[in-house]
């Protein structure tokens, strides 16, 4: 268990290209077939007791993984603590709500607009606040998340506390239907988005922005001395994370066909952040594992429904105390730098 991450990496390093491609295709195929897992007797343990299993795979599981990956760019890669990530989710959701009900744009056309809106919000929030010290940034982002919710709650033209009902579902695309009974189609959309984000993060990590984020996370002062324009890269990281949150919001709104302020509370931000830290900050696969576990388990143990948040709290404390770097922590080499910084 301790070196699961390193073992996986070693195995991967040992493969040649065709082997890797085959592995990835098989893995994606298996994940894509997950919604059918509830239908067969030998995999029926996956079924969730109260909500439909296919629906759970879309929200919360898929959505949480998507948002956790987005937040991981901000928190895990560049070390900026964002406690108001739900704001971007809400902005995406409300963009879909407003444009979907008042214009003739369909979900696929709204998706880039929602991402853009969230990104602009990220830049507007980031430019002034990313100069701040870490803890202050945490509290300002927390405040921003609440402000977005309160503004939605108090603005009559976007439905105030009742929110926006009857948001259209995506149109039939490539013969795939999207409506309330076809949860599987939504799952595939979310899966494609997740794959795109994974691809994007992998590209960024080996290029200039990734190196800049790594430098900023490990030691800001040194990064400045080495000529990294830290504010620019922080704003980039922040707004890319925001765009992913916005995308999740758009898909979420068109799936539930309804958005309301009480869907976007501080608890969601905390949950997403927990996915990131629980799984292993900075390590994409850890974050995915964290997202799957934290989203799926509460649904699976819904028979103790009243106490599931309590169990969640206890689990957070236990895991953080036993494995402070998360279930699948990042590489040792990177951790060494972080430990040095913490020890100062």
């Amino acid at each position: 268990m301790v070196n699961l991450r390193d073992k996986g990496a070693a195995l991967w390093e040992g493969w040649n290209r065709p082997k890797r491609v085959a592995f990835v295709i098989i893995l994606i195929g298996l994940v894509g077939l997950l919604p059918y897992g509830g239908d067969f007797s030998f995999t029926s343990f996956l079924n969730t007791p109260i909500s439909s299993y296919q629906a759970v795979l879309v929200y919360p599981v898929g959505m949480y993984v998507l948002m956790a990956l987005g937040l991981n760019i901000v928190v895990g890669k560049s070390g900026l603590l964002d406690l108001g990530y739900v704001a971007f989710f809400a902005i995406g959701g409300y963009t879909a709500g407003i444009l979907g009900t008042r214009t003739h744009l369909n979900t696929w056309e709204i998706l880039p607009i929602g991402m853009g809106t969230a990104m602009i919000a990220g830049v507007l929030l980031g430019l002034p606040t990313l100069r701040l010290r870490g803890d202050y940034l945490a509290i300002v982002t927390l405040g921003f998340g609440e402000i977005v919710r309160i503004v939605a709650l108090n603005t009559q033209s976007i439905g105030a506390s009742t929110g926006i009902p009857s948001i259209p579902t995506p149109p039939k695309t490539f013969g795939i239907k999207f409506d309330i009974v076809h949860n599987t189609s939504y799952f595939w959309v979310v899966l494609i988005l997740i794959l795109l984000v994974i691809w994007m993060i992998r590209r960024f990590t080996v290029r200039r922005p990734g190196r800049a984020w790594e430098a900023i996370r490990q030691d800001e002062d040194v990064a400045i001395l080495m000529g990294v324009p830290i504010l620019r890269y922080k704003v980039w990281s922040f707004s890319i994370g925001a765009a992913v949150g916005g995308a999740a919001g758009v898909i979420f709104a068109s799936k539930t066909q309804y958005v309301a302020p009480n869907m976007f509370t501080f608890n969601v931000s905390v949950l997403i952040l927990s996915c990131v830290v629980f799984g292993g900050m900075g390590n994409m696969w850890g974050v995915i594992l964290g997202g799957v576990l934290l989203a799926y388990l509460p649904e699976r143990i819904r028979f103790i429904s009243n106490a599931r948040q309590l169990v969640f709290g206890i689990a957070l404390v236990l895991i953080m105390n036993l494995r402070p770097d998360g279930l699948l922590p990042r590489k040792k080499r990177e951790k060494l730098g972080a430990a040095k910084k913490a020890g100062e």
Binding site: V75, V270, L273, S274, V277, M281, L310, G313, N321
Partner: peptide
Amino acid sequence: RRLRSKGTNRLASLISAIGTSIMISEGVRI
């Protein structure tokens, strides 16, 4: 306390505090 004695990252302490906070408020809610 435990996290402090290990000298680990600050985010772990923060999450652990958030977890404690959830534990207390959920306990009272129930």
